[in-house]
């Protein structure tokens, strides 16, 4: 991977409002990477496994759980089943804090599980922490 190539974040989220809020909060946390927003799981799979993207894999995937066509579980298992994509960190985003769902995501190999709390402060914090995490990941790439 060339060090000068722009590293992007793939945001897969069917709710436009959530996507916008996540983007705003990432920006507020100082994340300046390009964000590609896709609104369902099928588009995400098509995007990740397209030929031309092979060398431009996203830095991080933010994946919503409840989506039409392909849901988050299905997308996650496809990503983790493929040699090429399985190293890309995946952050699951969902409205529920159901322990069973969380456990299932970790079993499938997600890296972090973030619940979308309605408390705005917590939400921002979760996303900002994500942003911090991203900048740490980003550092060696820019160096």
């Amino acid at each position: 991977m060339s060090s000068h190539q722009a590293v992007t974040i793939l945001l897969v989220e069917d709710d436009a409002g959530h996507a916008r809020l996540i983007e705003k909060n990432l920006r507020r946390a100082g994340v300046s990477n390009g964000i590609i927003h896709l609104d369902n799981g099928q588009k995400a799979v098509d995007f990740l496994f397209a030929e031309e993207i092979a060398n431009h894999l996203p830095l991080l995937i933010l994946l919503d759980l409840n989506m039409p066509v392909l849901d988050g579980y299905q997308v996650l298992s496809r990503i983790k089943a493929d040699e090429r994509t399985k190293c890309v960190p995946v952050v699951m985003l969902t409205t529920t804090d159901n322990p069973q769902e969380i456990a299932r995501c970790y079993e499938l190999g997600c890296n972090i599980y973030v619940t979308k709390p309605v408390e705005y402060e917590q939400f921002s914090e979760a996303i900002r922490n994500l942003g911090l995490f991203l900048s740490i990941v980003k550092v060696p790439d820019e160096a």
Binding site: G17, L21, N66, K116, P117, V118, E119, Y120, F123
Partner: peptide, 12 residues
């Protein structure tokens, strides 16, 4: 909960 996240978020 999904729309609620939006209402709360955009109110913020």
């Amino acid at each position: 909960r999904a729309p609620l996240v939006n209402i709360k978020g955009f109110a913020g």
